[in-house]
């Protein structure tokens, strides 16, 4: 497992912003992701689509080593995540934080810079300036000093986006940035994502609304515990693949998992 060449088979892109090979993740010994292998293309808007419980959030958490993996290899710009942490920006689900926390929008955005500032060093005026500029870019300049629970859902989501912007990463992992926002906010967000893409960033977005996949994304990954299909939206986002991803009853994989769990409980 020491070198990239030893674990990544020939023909796989080494300079991919995110290269996942043979990833398996399990919670309480119940597999959530199984043998996931994808090389994500550079400089594109990538949608990750799949039913609830398909392991979409798990996938990006595994990339950032927030949860342990059972097996597999993850490379971020050709190196382990740890070595390239700075190049990855993360936008968590909005519900994952406590919005009653006593901070204002500017504080939340400034947190995106803490990693650059480093241990124990104070936040300086120039950092706040940077954060204020990011808030302006997402159209929240005049709400900078509002306590975050007093922002609407869409404004909270844009605050998170501003925080990702100040991180100035090359690869962004976003967990449902469009969840429960109004149409105008959704439009504003997609414009920002497009602008990020135009500046050469790779943006990976967990997405729920199948209607908009074709409009928003260049590349799509259809996920349901395993990767059902991945590729350019035009060729991959087909009725047939969707049927395989969402279709019908339990997949064979899920049935096997269920059987495993039952066996374990009866033992």
């Amino acid at each position: 497992m020491s070198s990239v060449a030893a674990t990544v088979p020939a023909g796989r892109a080494v300079d991919s912003p995110l290269s996942i090979y043979d990833l398996t993740v399990a919670y309480h010994r119940k597999p959530v992701l199984w043998d996931v292998s994808v090389d994500f293309p550079k400089g594109q808007l990538i949608g990750v689509v799949g039913p609830n419980g398909a392991g979409k959030s798990t996938l990006i958490k595994a990339v950032m080593e927030l949860i342990p993996t059972a097996s597999g290899e993850i490379r971020v710009f050709g190196k382990p995540y740890r070595k390239n942490r700075r190049r990855v920006g993360y936008v968590p689900q909005r519900e994952s934080v406590d919005w009653d926390f006593p901070v204002d929008a500017l504080d939340v955005v400034t947190m995106g810079l803490y990693g650059q500032i480093g241990w124990c060093l104070p936040v300086r005026r120039k950092h706040r300036q940077q954060a204020a500029e990011a808030l302006e870019r997402v159209g929240l300049a005049d709400l900078a000093h509002r306590q975050i629970s007093q922002l609407s859902g869409g404004q909270q989501q844009r605050t998170f986006l501003a925080r990702a912007l100040v991180q100035d990463a090359d690869l962004y992992l976003m967990d449902e940035p469009f969840a429960a926002v109004d149409a105008a906010t959704e439009q504003a967000i997609i414009e920002i994502l497009q602008e990020m893409k135009n500046r050469g960033k790779t943006v990976l977005v967990i997405h729920h609304d199948l209607q908009t996949v074709a409009d928003y994304f260049d590349y799509v990954v259809l996920l349901n515990m395993r990767v059902v299909a991945h590729g350019p939206v035009a060729t991959t986002f087909t009725q047939e693949n969707l049927q395989k991803t969402y279709g019908g009853r339990l997949t064979l994989l899920e049935e096997a998992t269920e059987a495993m769990r039952r066996r374990e409980k009866t033992l």
Binding site: P92, V97, F101, Y114
Partner: peptide
Amino acid sequence: KISSFDASLATTSG
């Protein structure tokens, strides 16, 4: 502050 507000952001920020 960061680890109390958003533990995953803290961890990914180092």
